[in-house]
Amino acid sequence: MRRRILRTATIGLVLAIAALVVPDSAVKSTEVALVKVDRANGVDLTPDVVWILAVGSDARPGEDMTRSRGDALQLVGMDTRTGAATAIGVPRDSWVPIPGHGYDKINASLYFGGPQLLGQTVGNLVGIQPDYVFISRFKFFQAMIKDIGGIEVDNPVAFDDTYLKPQGFPQGKIHLGGYDAMAFSRIRHNLLRGDFDRSANQQRVLRGIQAKVRARADVPGFIEKGVLSVMAHLSTNLPPAELFRLAQAMAQVEPRKITSCVVQGGIGNIGGASVVLPYVDMARRLGNEARNDATIEHC
């Protein structure tokens, strides 16, 4: 029973930050980071809601992924009292005020001030300041998907991309390997609603990862291998005890209690660049609705 409890806590860590099962040889420590936001005090995980900003970094080889432009932004909340969880997607091109830097695309805040400033900027938009910021490179993401045997997602509309996926993704339930999961998460140009549909696709991928890891959680050595690999490659400012408490909180998430929405907005052109003009009132409504119980009733 004791072993089962420890394994369950570990499963949660893999599930909620969605990129923590990779072969030891696949990545280096610079491929993934978990940063505690300065404003967050010691986390009392019972009965509080814990918020993690999950970020996909488009940093090139040799670049610092914590000071690049974030490509995927998902604010994930977990209610340790009920097992509920929610993801609020924020389009990366959202034109917002960045503290100390005027207006810019929201993903530029990672470049300007690292995870702390990105967390503050997203928090200002949604009205919920994250406790942690989790950042991973796409190479790490692909290795994780490959290692767990790929994932299944329900794709509502067929789409393709000349460069990333010329043969396209068909409508319906499809299997994604490492590269395809990355492409499915990144493509936006041929999607009807561009950045908004891409953010929704990222949430579909997160659900697929969660489902696969849960399905394999009882395979002997699967979770243990993943956690040992993570600890070897994870860059973090958290002490081990807090990592364990965070894992316990994540372990309580129930798939049937997961909800997700994407912040919508208008499309504009500023300085020759296409930007998203986010509906701030919607972002705040989603934040207000999810703040106390990590649940969104409707988008």
Rank of each mutant, 00 (worst) to 15 (best):
M1T: 14
R2T: 13
R3S: 14
R3W: 14
R4V: 13
I5Q: 11
A9S: 09
A9N: 09
T10F: 10
I11A: 13
I11T: 14
L13W: 11
V14M: 15
A16K: 01
I17F: 13
A18V: 10
A19M: 12
L20T: 12
D24R: 14
A26M: 02
K28A: 12
K28S: 14
V32Q: 10
K36R: 15
A40Q: 09
V43I: 13
D44C: 04
L45V: 13
T46N: 15
V49F: 08
I52K: 04
L53D: 12
L53M: 10
A54Q: 11
S57L: 02
G62Q: 05
G62P: 04
E63F: 07
T66N: 05
D71L: 06
D71Q: 06
G77T: 05
G77M: 06
D79M: 04
A84F: 03
T86M: 12
I88D: 01
R92N: 01
D93K: 00
S94F: 09
W95F: 13
V96Q: 07
P97Q: 14
I98N: 01
P99N: 06
K105N: 06
K105D: 02
I106G: 06
N107W: 02
N107A: 09
N107Y: 05
S109W: 09
L110R: 06
L110G: 05
F112P: 00
G114Q: 10
Q116E: 15
L117G: 07
L117P: 09
G119H: 08
Q120N: 11
V122S: 05
V122A: 03
G123C: 03
N124Q: 14
P130F: 07
Y132W: 11
Y132A: 03
I135C: 01
S136T: 15
R137V: 02
R137G: 13
K139G: 13
Q142Y: 02
Q142I: 07
G149A: 07
D154G: 06
P156V: 07
F159G: 03
D160F: 15
T162N: 14
Y163S: 11
K165P: 00
P166Q: 06
G168S: 09
Q171A: 14
Q171H: 08
Q171Y: 06
Q171N: 02
G172P: 04
K173S: 13
I174L: 04
L176V: 01
R186P: 02
I187N: 00
L191V: 03
L192E: 15
G194D: 04
F196M: 07
S199P: 00
S199Y: 00
A200I: 02
Q202P: 00
Q203G: 02
R207F: 08
G208K: 03
G208W: 11
I209T: 00
I209P: 00
K212S: 13
A217V: 15
A217W: 14
V219W: 09
F222I: 10
F222L: 05
H233T: 12
L234F: 08
S235V: 15
N237E: 08
A241H: 11
A241D: 15
L243F: 08
F244P: 00
L246K: 00
V253N: 01
T259F: 08
C261Q: 14
V262R: 07
V262Y: 08
G265H: 12
G266A: 15
I267A: 12
S274Q: 09
L277Q: 08
Y279V: 10
V280F: 11
D281A: 11
M282A: 05
L286E: 08
G287Y: 01
E289N: 02
R291Q: 08
A294D: 03
